[in-house]
């Protein structure tokens, strides 16, 4: 496969996201800009300008109508994807670390950073499903996180039932998305190793968290039980789950930029790592970035993935047939078994 290199940013990428159909890629970086790209050929659709600080997070709603961004200028903004018009701007006392739409696109979540005198807050807003409608100023839910350390990542589970948060000390907590009460907290990652990313499976019943402790964990959204553990040899910044029918997880990471001295690209481990989702075994790597991978995202149709790096590039990879054909022996046997049963029933 020949990766497509997108060089629309001047500084490190912080997050990249696919639209639901996988045709658009949205990227945010520390250079205050948001870019939209067509994933098929890497053509830039446009930019969303207005932020005054580094951007930390971006998300797009399931209809690819609204785009939400948040960053270090203490604002969260809502944009119209098609025209690039800013529809709404919410201001906060501290910077926004994470934004995410719910599965149905009707709720938007923003996480504020903990700083002197300010606790981490999770704000949830109702989004009016009309481009021309006035969006509400007041959040429908505000969770003040006082018992746990700083929130780094957060997201809505299936049916907007829970909000799952990842914390600076490796903790993963579950909150009721209606009342804002904390239901449970687990410590899947090493104490003190920050949770760096949280991404959902296609049906949002389980998720994967990556951490600086060099592991990624697949967890159940209802029980927070750790289903699988993927061990890497470098601190991880991001982890993604590929959709059916492939069974992979993609991990991205690498030595932090500040720790890199004169290491070669190979030693820095700036590669996307592919693990088998069930067998937890590494099956391959894709190299290319000159710096750590800050985010990896998989297209919801499973046909391509992209990674945003500290080097300022987004690399879009469209998978080749071997990626789809690869199966373990047991998987093949199971497939054969199922086929035979189908025939018998017919």
């Amino acid at each position: 496969m020949r990766p497509i290199l997108l060089s629309g940013h001047e500084r490190a990428l912080t997050q990249v996201k696919f639209s639901k159909e996988g045709d658009f890629i949205f990227s945010v970086s520390k250079d205050h800009n948001v870019c939209a790209w067509y994933s098929a050929n890497g053509e830039r659709f446009g930019m969303y300008k207005g932020h005054q600080g580094a951007l930390w997070s971006v998300d797009v709603d399931p209809t690819t109508t609204f785009l939400a961004t948040g960053g270090a200028d203490n604002t969260m903004r809502l944009w119209e994807v098609k025209t690039g018009k800013q529809l709404k701007q919410w201001e906060f006392p501290t910077s926004i670390r994470r934004v995410e739409f719910s599965e149905d696109g009707k709720l938007l979540l923003g996480v504020t950073e903990k700083r002197t005198g300010q606790l981490s807050n999770i704000y949830v807003y109702d989004i009016a499903q009309d481009v021309n409608a006035e969006q509400s100023d007041e959040p429908t839910l505000r969770i003040v996180v006082d018992e746990l350390p700083r929130v780094t990542v957060a997201g809505f589970s299936y049916l907007n039932r829970y909000i799952i948060t990842g914390h600076e000390n490796g903790c993963v907590a579950q909150w009721d998305a209606k009342t804002g009460e904390m239901i449970a907290d687990e410590y899947p990652h090493e104490d003190g190793a920050s949770v760096t990313d949280l991404q959902w499976s296609a049906d949002r019943t389980y998720f994967i968290t990556s951490s600086k402790d060099k592991t990624a964990k697949l967890q159940d959204a209802r029980t927070l039980k750790v289903l699988h553990t993927y061990v890497a040899d470098t601190p991880l910044n991001s982890a993604a789950i590929t959709p059916e029918p492939t069974n992979y997880v993609i991990l991205g990471g690498g030595q932090a930029a500040m720790d890199v001295t004169t290491t070669s690209a190979r030693q820095g481990k700036f590669e996307a790592r592919f693990y088998h989702k069930i067998f937890e075994e590494e099956v391959g790597r894709v190299r290319g970035h000159f710096g750590p991978l800050n985010y990896v995202a998989v297209s919801p149709d499973g046909k391509c993935y992209c990674s945003g790096g500290e080097d300022g590039y987004v690399r879009v990879h469209h998978f080749d047939p071997p990626y789809f054909d690869f199966k373990y022996e047991v998987e093949r046997e199971m497939q054969g078994h199922m086929n035979r049963r189908m025939e018998q029933e017919l």
Binding site: V283, R287, F326
Partner: peptide, 18 residues
């Protein structure tokens, strides 16, 4: 803004070692 990178051969394999 958009360039093509060099070709990468990626095929998953059992027992991959870095």
């Amino acid at each position: 803004t958009t360039t093509l990178g060099e070709n990468i051969i990626f095929r998953p394999q059992m027992g991959f070692k870095s």
